[in-house]
Design a protein around this nucleic acid. Structure first.
Lengths: 154, 154
DNA sequence: GCTTGAGCTAAAGTTAGCTTTAGGAATTAT
DNA sequence: ATAATTCCTAAAGCTAACTTTAGCTCAAGC
């Protein structure tokens, strides 16, 4: 039975458009924390619809689930988050999003310079500098170029 | 022996900062196509330094290896690419990059509206519309919200 | 001419973000 | 009361972009 203010995973899936499997996965990642009923089935709160909507929006912005969990951890634990609570953490994202846009724009402007000069591979190229976009999750140094031996005809 | 204009995988790795294993992987993905010497070892051209530099730059912009291979396939096959060739395909990227920046900016502006109204989860929310950033590689519908049952206190 | 470093292949492992599968158990509908 | 849904867990699979490992060969230096 779905009691007032309690919903099943299927209902939550329908409301959010997420797959049931995705919601279960989000639980393992600490993004929602449903209770269980007598039969062991998950019982979510209606406010979890908003919670997962927030997750989906943040993902559209390119944030990782880890980062999203971090930001959401700033929501009050003791009570159901209000509209104001959501607004506040949204502003955090807004700031990061701005940075990301700016980083991408800077990179684009550098590329413009390189298109002009046609080098694209010499170590004096502006793209050489790693003052870049986002965090590269991969391992290793990954620096660009350093190709002093390339001659014009290469 | 490294003959004039032929370099080993190790040399290429040093010049680009890439790991040897990454270069081998790029070969499987059709991003470079080295020849082999008598002993079966890869022999790259010096111009491959520029090729891989281009790959690295494009990756910074967030392009997938598949997309990069596609764009690079427009380079001349019959001769070593000139600076002008590189400039031309760079402009393709430049255009896509612009679109991406604009999409992100639009999304940010929508978020601004939502921060203002504090809804963040109602189906009249601007973030509901999927005129979005990039292609979502994942499967499934993935629409946002549609949460008519959420009441103010949720 | 032999030791050591560089290279080779094939296969398995890694992270993120999920989905799919298999085999049961709980709910809901009739 | 029984059939049809829905849900459960655990484990394996998937894509991207690589790395790691194992076991072996090649090439370069002394």
């Amino acid at each position: 039975m779905e009691r007032r203010n309690e919903i099943s995973i299927g209902t939550l899936a329908n409301r959010t458009g997420l797959a049931v499997s995705a919601i279960r996965y989000y639980e393992t990642q600490g993004l929602v924390a449903p209770e269980r009923n007598a039969g062991g089935q998950r019982r979510f709160l209606r406010s979890d619809i908003r919670r997962l909507s927030f997750v989906m929006i943040a993902q559209k912005f390119g944030f990782t689930l880890d980062r999203i969990r971090e930001v959401m951890s700033r929501l009050p634990q003791s009570r159901t988050p209000t509209a104001k609570d959501w607004t506040e953490i949204s502003q955090d994202f807004r700031a990061e999003l701005d940075e990301q846009i700016q980083a991408l724009t800077r990179l684009r402007d550098k590329l413009d310079g390189c298109i002009g000069c046609g080098c694209l591979s010499l170590d004096r190229c502006a793209l050489y500098n790693p003052d870049d976009v986002a965090a590269d999750k991969g391992a290793g140094p990954r620096y660009l170029m350093g190709d002093e031996a390339v001659r014009p005809e290469d």
